[in-house]
Design a protein around this nucleic acid. Structure first.
Length: 824
RNA sequence: GCCGGGGUGGCGGAAUUGGUAGACGCGCCAGACUCAAAAUCUGGUUGGGGCAACUCAGUGUCGGUUCGAGUCCGACCCUCGGUACCA
C-alpha cells in the first residue's frame, strides 16, 4: 500500500527541514556569481490575497531556478508597514496602528512560510521599526545639507468638517470620503525633494533599462514629460513682464490672445478690482473635476482688461484668465494661437476672438479654419513677416534666435515632472526629523539624536493625527538646547520607505550606517517582480533614491533594478478579484484544501507570468491530480529506482548509448522536453514548463522500467530530470520525492540538468509533405537519406501522386529535417 | 485623443528565425472498475461533409508579400490597461 499524498504533512516537514538547516540564509561570497531576486514587499493589510501569492511564487521560482544554476541567490522579504489603512483600522477597532500592524505582519508571515518561499528571514525588515526609519531620517539630513530637500507652500485637499488633509484617494467626486463635505484646496507649507534635478538622468537612463517592459519605460518617459520650447515674455504696462512657455514658437505671429491660470498673480490682482473676474477665479478654485468631467469641460474664460505687447510685432494682445490653463505647468500663462492649437481654437470660437493662420499645409492643400485648428507641425509659415516661407522646425529656430537676440526670451526645456512632495499630515508614518524655533526657522535634528521616534502607544479617537495634539511629542528644544522648539508633526510619504528597502536588505543589522559595503556585493537587484500599478511612482522614486544614494557614496551602481517583471492580475469570472465585486478566493482556504504546491503549480501553469490569470477551481483540482499522479509514480517505482542506482553510476547514465529502442525513445522524449523547458525557464514562461513536466510524466507513466538495464537507467535519468524541473515550482513534494527516489543531497541544491544532444538524434525522421503549401501527407525516412532520395520518396507517395496527378512539378522545397513542399 | 498589451476550439492557453495550427490542462462524450456513486484508469474531443479511406473550411475583418502567413507588410474593427486641457 502506497502512502497517500498528504500535502499538509510533507509540506510542513520540508519547511521544518529547510528551517533547521537555514537553507535560505545567504552571505556574500565573491567566488560565486550572485543573484538578487526581489519581490515587492507587501503592505500588511491583514492576510495574503491571490495577487501576493502569484507575485511571490514567480519570485520564488526564479530564485530556486537560479540557485540550481549554481548562483549565490538572495531572496529577502519585509513589510511596507506605514500607511493609511492602519489609521482607519485604528479608528474602526480602537486599536493603536502599531498593534494592528504587528498582528497583521505576524499572521501574514506564517502564511508566507506556509507557502514555502525560500526567503532569508534573517534579513526581514519592517519599515515602521525605528531601526529602519532612523536611517531614512539620517538620509533626509544629507538631503537637507545638499539643498535637495526644501520647504514650500503647496496645495492640499482639505476636509473642512474633519479639519484634516486628505490623500487624493480619499477624495471621491470632490467630496471627503468619510464626511461627504466638499473638499477645499488649501495652501500648506510642505517638504519637497528635488527630483527635478535628476529629471534628465532619470529620463536618459530609461533607454538603458533593457530588462524592463516597454510599457513601464514608456509610462516613465511620459511621466517625466520632457519638452523643448521657448520661454519669452510680453511687456505689460505697470506690471512685471508676463512670462509664457511654448513648444510652438513657429506660430508666434498667430497669437491673438493670452491666457493665464486662475491662480496666476495677474488674475488674482485683476480679481481685486473686478468682481466678475473675482467670481470667475473663485469658481475655478472649487472645481475638483474628475477625469471624465475634465474631458468634456467647457473652455471658459473672462478678459482681465489688460494687454501685453507682442515681442515681435509690438501689437497689443488681450489677456484673459481661462480655466484650462494650469498654474502647475510651465509659467502658468500661455500665448494663444487659435489657428494652430485646438484648445485655443475652441476658446476663440466661443469668445469671438480672431483666428489668424500663420502655417499653411506643405502639400498646397487648403485647411478650413472655421472647422478646426491646423495643429500638425508640418507646414510652411505664412503671414509671419520676416519668418515667412520656413518649415516649422526652421521657423522654431528662427523665432527662438530672434527672441534671444532681442532679449525677450530663450530656449528652455520643460518637464511635466514636479518635485516630490513628501509631507503627509498623518500620524502613521516616519516623522520628518526637523524642529522649528518660534520664528518658524528650520533646524535639522542632529544625527546623534536620531531616530525621532513615533509614539506608538496612542489614543486614536478622532481623525486628527494624535501627535499634533501631543505636547510630549511636539514640545522640544533647539539642537543648541537653549531655546524651546516645536517638532515637525508631518510624516513622510510612505513611498519614502519603499524607495530604498531593497538596499537595506543587503545590510541586515547594520546599526552604525544606513548601508555598508555588503550593499555593493548584492546590488543592483537582478530581478525585480511586482505589479504594474507601481510602473511610475514607486519605480521612479526608487530609481531616484538610488541615484541620491550613489551621489552620497552609499552605492556604486546607477540603477537599482536590472530586470523588471510585472505580473498580470488574478481574475475570477473575467474581472479582477476584489472585495467590492465579491469574487475573491482566499488563498488560505486553497492551501488548506490542496496544499501550497498545488496552489503554486496552478498559478504557474494557468497563464504566463505577465498575462492575467483566470482563477478556475476545476483547473486547481487538475493541478492537484497531477501531483498525486507524480507521487504515485515515484512510490510505485521506488524499488526500481533503488536497483537502478545500484546498477549505474552517474557516468554510465551520461554515456548511455542505449541499445534498447524503447529506452532510446524515452531518452529522446526526455531531452526534447528538457531542451524546451530550459528555454522556457530562461524566458520566464512557466506555464509551458509545467506543460513539459506533464508531458514527461505521461511518458514515464506508460514506460516499463523493468524490461532491461537500459530501460532502468533511462527511466531513472528521466525521473531525476522530472524532479529537477519541478523543484522550483512545487518544492515540497520535489524535496520529499527526491529522498524517496534515494537521490543524494537536496534537490534544492542539485545541479541543473544538461540536455544530451546525442539523445536527441534519431535513426529515422518524419517528413511532412506539402503540395502548394498545404499538408497532404507524411513519410518516415532514414535519417541519412540524401536530398534526392527524399525528393523521390515524397513525389512517389500515394496520396501525393493523387494530388499531383498530371500537373507539372515546378519546384520542390526542402526544409531540413522537417518538410517537403511540392509546387505544382 | 495619445501610449502600451491582447483578439487562436466550449474554457485557460501552446506554436525558435515565416515551415505539420490547437501542445498541456480544464470541461464534455464514451468505455473499464463498482450493487451504485465518487475517486481512479483507457480512448475520443476545431467546425462542416462522408460508413470509411478521405475531403473542404479554419487563428478579429479586408487586402498584400511568399513555394508556404497565427507569425511579415498596409488599412480597419473589437477589447483590456495606462494617461492627458502639459501649452
Amino acid at each position: 500500500m502506497i502512502d497517500k499524498y498528504n500535502p499538509a504533512k510533507i509540506e510542513s516537514a520540508a519547511q521544518k527541514y529547510w528551517d533547521d538547516r537555514q537553507s535560505f540564509a545567504v552571505s556574500e561570497d565573491t567566488d560565486r556569481e550572485k543573484y538578487y531576486c526581489l519581490s515587492m514587499l507587501p503592505y500588511p493589510s491583514g492576510k495574503l490575497h491571490m495577487g501576493h501569492v502569484r507575485n511571490y511564487t514567480i519570485g520564488d521560482v526564479i530564485s530556486r531556478y537560479q540557485r540550481m544554476l549554481g548562483k549565490n541567490v538572495l531572496q529577502p522579504m519585509g513589510w511596507d508597514a506605514f500607511g493609511l489603512p492602519a489609521e482607519n483600522a485604528a479608528i474602526a477597532h480602537r486599536t493603536p496602528p502599531a498593534k494592528w500592524t504587528t498582528a497583521n505582519i505576524d499572521y501574514m508571515r506564517t502564511q508566507l512560510k506556509r507557502l514555502g518561499f525560500g526567503y532569508d528571514w534573517n534579513r526581514e525588515l519592517s519599515t515602521c521599526s525605528p531601526e529602519y526609519y532612523r536611517w531614512e531620517q539620517w538620509f533626509f539630513n544629507r538631503l537637507l545639507e545638499k539643498n535637495l530637500a526644501y520647504k514650500k507652500m503647496a496645495v492640499v485637499n482639505w476636509d473642512p468638517v474633519e479639519q484634516t488633509v486628505l490623500a487624493n484617494e480619499q477624495v471621491e467626486n470632490g467630496r471627503g470620503w468619510r464626511s461627504g463635505a466638499i473638499v477645499e484646496r488649501r495652501e500648506v507649507s510642505q517638504w519637497f525633494i528635488r527630483i527635478t534635478e535628476y529629471a534628465e538622468e532619470l529620463l536618459n537612463e530609461i533607454d538603458h533599462l533593457e530588462g524592463w517592459p516597454d510599457a513601464v519605460r514608456t509610462m516613465q518617459r511620459n511621466w517625466i514629460g520632457r519638452s523643448e520650447g521657448v520661454e519669452f515674455s510680453f511687456r505689460v504696462e505697470g506690471e512685471e513682464p508676463l512670462e509664457v512657455y511654448t513648444t510652438r514658437p513657429d506660430t508666434i505671429m498667430g497669437i491673438t490672445f493670452i491666457s493665464v491660470a486662475a491662480e496666476h498673480p495677474l488674475a488674482l490682482k485683476a480679481a481685486g478690482n473686478n468682481p466678475d473676474v473675482a467670481a470667475f477665479v473663485e469658481s475655478c478654485k472649487n472645481v475638483h473635476a474628475t477625469e471624465k468631467e475634465m474631458e468634456t469641460m467647457e473652455k471658459k474664460g473672462i478678459p482681465l482688461g489688460i494687454t501685453g505687447i507682442h515681442p515681435v510685432s509690438g501689437e497689443e494682445i488681450g489677456i484673459w484668465v481661462a480655466n484650462f490653463v494650469l498654474m502647475e505647468y510651465g509659467t502658468g500663462a500661455i500665448m494663444a494661437v487659435p489657428a494652430h492649437d485646438q484648445r485655443d481654437w475652441e476658446f476663440a470660437t466661443k469668445h469671438g476672438i480672431e483666428i489668424r493662420p500663420v502655417i499653411r499645409p506643405a502639400d498646397g492643400s487648403q485647411h478650413d479654419f472655421s472647422q478646426s485648428a491646423l495643429t500638425a507641425k508640418e507646414g510652411i509659415t505664412c503671414n509671419s513677416g520676416v519668418f515667412d516661407g520656413l518649415g516649422c522646425a526652421a521657423a522654431c529656430e528662427a523665432v527662438a534666435e530672434y527672441l534671444e537676440t532681442h532679449g525677450a526670451g530663450r530656449k528652455t526645456i520643460n518637464y511635466r515632472l514636479r518635485d516630490w512632495g513628501v509631507s503627509r499630515q498623518r500620524y502613521w508614518g516616519c516623522p520628518i526629523p526637523v524642529v522649528y524655533d518660534d520664528a518658524g526657522k528650520v533646524f535639522a535634528v542632529p544625527d546623534g539624536e536620531l531616530p525621532v521616534r513615533l509614539p506608538e502607544d496612542v489614543e486614536f479617537s478622532g481623525v486628527q493625527s494624535p501627535i499634533r495634539n501631543d505636547p510630549e511629542f511636539y514640545r522640544t528644544t533647539l539642537p543648541s538646547g537653549d531655546r524651546p522648539a516645536i517638532r515637525e508633526t508631518d510624516t513622510f510619504d510612505t513611498f519614502f520607505e519603499s524607495s530604498w528597502y531593497y538596499a537595506r536588505y543587503c545590510c541586515p543589522g547594520s546599526d552604525h550606517a544606513m548601508l555598508d559595503e555588503r550593499a555593493n556585493y548584492w546590488l543592483p537587484v537582478d530581478q525585480y517582480v511586482g505589479g504594474i500599478e507601481h510602473a511610475v511612482l514607486h519605480l521612479l522614486y526608487a530609481r531616484f533614491f538610488h541615484k541620491l544614494m550613489r551621489d552620497a557614496g552609499l552605492v556604486d551602481s546607477d540603477e537599482p533594478f536590472t530586470n523588471l517583471l510585472c505580473q498580470g492580475m488574478v481574475l475570477k469570472d473575467g474581472s479582477k478579484m476584489s472585495k467590492s465585486k465579491n469574487n475573491t478566493v482566499d488563498p488560505q482556504s486553497m492551501i488548506d484544501k490542496y496544499g501550497a504546491d498545488t496552489v503554486r503549480l496552478f498559478m504557474m501553469f494557468a497563464s504566463p507570468p505577465e498575462q492575467p490569470l483566470e482563477w478556475n477551481d476545476d483547473a486547481v483540482a487538475g493541478s492537484f491530480r497531477f501531483l498525486k499522479r507524480w507521487w504515485a509514480l515515484v512510490h510505485r517505482n521506488s524499488e526500481a529506482m533503488a536497483t537502478a542506482r545500484q546498477l549505474s553510476s552517474d557516468q554510465d547514465l551520461a554515456a548511455a548509448d542505449c541499445a534498447d529502442r524503447e529506452a532510446r525513445e524515452l531518452r529522446r522524449t526526455t531531452h526534447r522536453i528538457l531542451e524546451k523547458v530550459v528555454r522556457d525557464y530562461q524566458r520566464i514562461h512557466y506555464n509551458t514548463v509545467v506543460a513539459g513536466a506533464m508531458e514527461l510524466l505521461n511518458s514515464l507513466d506508460r514506460f516499463d522500467p523493468g524490461k532491461n538495464r537500459d530501460c532502468l537507467s533511462a527511466f531513472r535519468e528521466s525521473m531525476v530530470i522530472l524532479n529537477k524541473i519541478l523543484a522550483p515550482i512545487a518544492p515540497h513534494i520535489a524535496h520529499r520525492l527526491w529522498h524517496v527516489m534515494g537521490e543524494a543531497g537536496d534537490v534544492l541544491d542539485a545541479d541543473w540538468p544538461q540536455v544530451d544532444r546525442q539523445a536527441l538524434q534519431s535513426d529515422t525522421l518524419k517528413w511532412v509533405i506539402q503540395v502548394n503549401g498545404r499538408l497532404r501527407s507524411e513519410i518516415e525516412l532514414a535519417a541519412d537519406c540524401s536530398e534526392q532520395e527524399i525528393r523521390a520518396m515524397a513525389v512517389a507517395d500515394r496520396r501525393i501522386r493523387n494530388f499531383i496527378k498530371d500537373a507539372e512539378v515546378r519546384k520542390i522545397i526542402i526544409v531540413p529535417a522537417k518538410l517537403v513542399n511540392i509546387v505544382i
